[in-house]
Design a protein around this nucleic acid. Structure first.
Lengths: 257, 257
DNA sequence: CCTTGCCTCCTCATTTTGGAGGATGTGCAG
DNA sequence: CTGCACATCCTCCAAAATGAGGAGGCAAGG
């Protein structure tokens, strides 16, 4: 399918390969990749969202997109966006024409009141998936007057998108490992698992720093007997019987399930 | 410099880009990369060493190289290898001709008794470095009768090598983080730092699992008073005064300096 | 209004731990 | 052979932690 690359393209592809391994931050990588892709694909607009960890939060990165228009998308148009859901269903680089006919597209409110206003006429998307769900995407658009994207452009976006998806997945898994190694988060997870109250967590936190009841009491401005009461509750709830056991349990591998 | 890529080359470059992000194991990555590079550069032999962590250990991976010849290198020729040290000094892809004249090369024992025996005539190396030293390399050779590598080949190897170096560095840093997060290694590091004896470490290890003196004693088949003696020594050496403090200290961030 | 959960504080009994001082045997290196 | 380090065991004591029983106050929600 994909035939040859010009010198300019080759240079960009190698630059992208290096970005992909060198840049370890998802935002930076997408900004860099966006600039390269606009250059490589002779496109004008770039947007990329990633879906953050557990909650459905998105983190968007944009090039040449109008701020106020983006705000409008956040508030209104994302709810009547007829194309992104269809793009999302495709596991490879997809051309706008593949998911909606040009005629229908030009009639949508979404195009006329939103995309056209920013100058977006020809689009390609790549949506990256990992085993556990949607990772993020790359959205490339050309302005009015330019010709539509070709099969060749799709192939390039697809190849780069695939590697991009891998890179995102790696960052995810590294973040995950980082989180699992973070003592505070381990503690919080453990506390949640055992349904500790706020104060019980406060006490446990200080216990995990190796402090004695007396120190904890003075740190929290409560009496030693109160500290002991909270601690008693922690033991009750966890079924453990000593501070050392608590710390071992909190720091145990797989303590986040 | 680098001009255009053929369809075959383009396909391989994209495949390499994906390997570079997808493969997280240094050995596997090099094997895969080796196969792709031989294909891409129309070469015949591939070798790649990485220098492991602290000790100067090397881990080699090879394609089409003769086993017995490799053993000979390990035992003898690595000590009179006149070219690898020079290759190593170059921070970018380097052609054999750039570090030694063809005439001189053909006169070396190393070529006549070692390389030529395996059929290695034309070579290119890429050595990857990180801030803290040598990471690893990619060595590409062509057999007799083939023409020498061109500037174009060097450019490709250089671009791929750069990304490869990054990928290696990432794996290194991930391994490092993994190690820092491993409770056993944290404990061992802590023990070393405080000059604990073997038995003291045994006791400390069980303490870190949350066990009581009595359990530790029965686990180690010693009396409770002995456990306390060892523990006393641990407190003495560390300057700490409670098990909880011990555990907190062992699990503290930066506990590996 | 009344329950429920949480935070605060208490006592008394018991167990566990830490600190101080030993003693003994074994093995190894100077 | 003579220290020396190490592992093993001991006593006595005080401090800390744990377990079991409370009680009062306060705020949110049915």
């Amino acid at each position: 399918m994909l035939t040859t690359l010009s010198g300019r393209e080759t240079k960009l592809i190698f630059a992208i390969m290096q970005d992909m391994t060198a840049i370890q931050d998802a935002r930076q990588l997408r900004l860099q990749l966006g600039a390269r892709l606009l250059d490589l694909l002779e496109a004008d607009y770039f947007a990329s969202y990633v879906w953050t960890r557990t909650d459905g939060d998105t983190d968007g990165v944009f090039l040449n997109m109008d701020e106020s228009n983006l705000a409008a998308y956040q508030h209104h148009f994302q709810h009547c966006d007829p194309i992104t859901p269809r793009f999302r269903m495709c596991r490879r680089a997809t051309h706008l024409d593949q998911i909606i006919s040009r005629e229908d597209f030009l009639r949508t409110e979404f195009y006329n009141d939103f995309l056209a206003r920013d100058g977006l006429h020809q689009g390609m998307n790549f949506h990256a998936y990992a085993a556990n769900g949607h990772l993020g995407d790359l959205r490339i658009w050309r302005g009015a007057g330019k010709e539509t994207f070709q099969q060749r452009d799709l192939e390039m976006l697809n190849a780069i998108g695939t590697a991009f998806g891998q890179a995102l997945a790696n960052m995810r898994s590294n973040e995950q490992k980082q989180r699992e190694a973070d003592p505070r988060l381990r503690l919080a997870a453990w506390a949640t698992r055992h349904h500790l109250t706020g104060r019980e967590q406060d006490v446990l936190c200080l216990v995990s720093e190796g402090k004695r009841d007396r120190e904890i009491a003075s740190d929290l401005n409560i009496s030693v007997t109160t500290v002991r009461s909270h601690l008693k509750a922690v033991f009750q709830k966890s079924g453990l019987t000593s501070r050392a056991e608590l710390l071992a349990s909190i720091n145990a591998r797989h303590s986040l399930q």
